[in-house]
């Protein structure tokens, strides 16, 4: 288990509001990690910083064996470096078919000329079929993504995330709007993914997290409040105070 992502001493301020305050988190590869915290704790902003959407005021974000700083890279470069992200609100390309959505996400060269001269291969078609199978959309490959239900969009987005074949998956509330059976399936997919790569999951649902059975990081007011197993953190007095309110 080696450290894949190291966030250290990161702070970010919006209009005087300190959203992230001296945050330090390390993620190993492979690892499954859950991030919890009350609203406004900075969970999503943490993901924004790692994926390059938000530039921090200070601190370091170091990636991979070569210790590359992610701060100088654009969103697309970070994505190509191997970080995939699933958004809180499912954002798939609704005007396009499920197959097109998956094909776009599929790991391949991303340059415009590469894409222009891209030709469908048997392996790619097979991989798309395989992913569709896994996310239960085999029958919907030719349908427009906009016609899918909310849960199906969530699946599609998870499928796109897997199609990218990233080393680090950042997953923001994957189970929102899913039935219990679907949640279970999601847990399975994430656990399986975490066997070979790093997966960071933001979730509010404690039951879901318990089923993941992984290390938990509790964020509060932009910094780490507690870290450890779910049982360990839920017994932490500070965490109880934050969640129940003082």
């Amino acid at each position: 288990m080696t450290t894949l992502l190291e966030v250290s001493g990161v702070s970010v301020t919006f209009d005087g509001f300190r959203a992230i305050n001296n945050l330090s988190i390390q993620v190993a590869e492979p690892e499954l990690r859950a991030v919890i915290g009350p609203n406004g704790a900075g969970k999503t902003t943490f993901m924004d910083i790692v994926t390059g959407k938000t530039r921090p005021d200070e601190g370091r974000v170091i990636w991979g064996e070569k210790n590359v700083s992610l701060l100088g890279l654009s969103e697309s470069q970070i994505a190509r470096a191997g970080i995939g992200r699933k958004f809180q609100k499912p954002t798939v390309f609704e005007a396009q078919t499920v197959r097109e959505n998956l094909a776009m996400a599929l790991k391949a060269r991303r340059g415009p000329f590469d894409v222009l001269l891209y030709r469908r291969s048997k392996t790619a078609t097979a991989r798309i079929a395989e992913l569709a199978e896994e996310i239960g959309l085999s029958d919907a490959l030719a349908r427009r993504a906009g016609e899918l239900s909310h849960g199906q969009k969530q699946w599609l987005e998870i499928g796109m995330l897997l199609a990218q074949d990233p080393r680090l998956l950042l997953v923001d509330e994957p189970a929102a709007g899913m039935t219990p059976a679907e949640r279970e399936h999601t847990t399975d997919i994430l656990k399986r993914a975490a066997e070979t790569r790093a997966v960071v999951v933001i979730e509010h649902d404690m039951e879901f997290i318990r089923r993941l059975g992984c290390k938990v990081t509790v964020l509060h007011e932009g910094s780490v409040l507690a870290e450890g197993s779910l049982d360990h953190v839920t017994q932490n007095q500070q965490v109880i105070d934050v969640y129940l309110g003082r």
Binding site: S76, A95, M104, R110, V115
Partner: peptide
């Protein structure tokens, strides 16, 4: 290619997070 540019039209930020420049 068409798929990517239409995706850019609809949500360019998301396309960036897929790794496209």
């Amino acid at each position: 290619f068409g798929s990517v540019i239409r995706a850019i039209r609809d949500n360019e930020a998301r396309v960036r997070f897929l790794g496209y420049d």
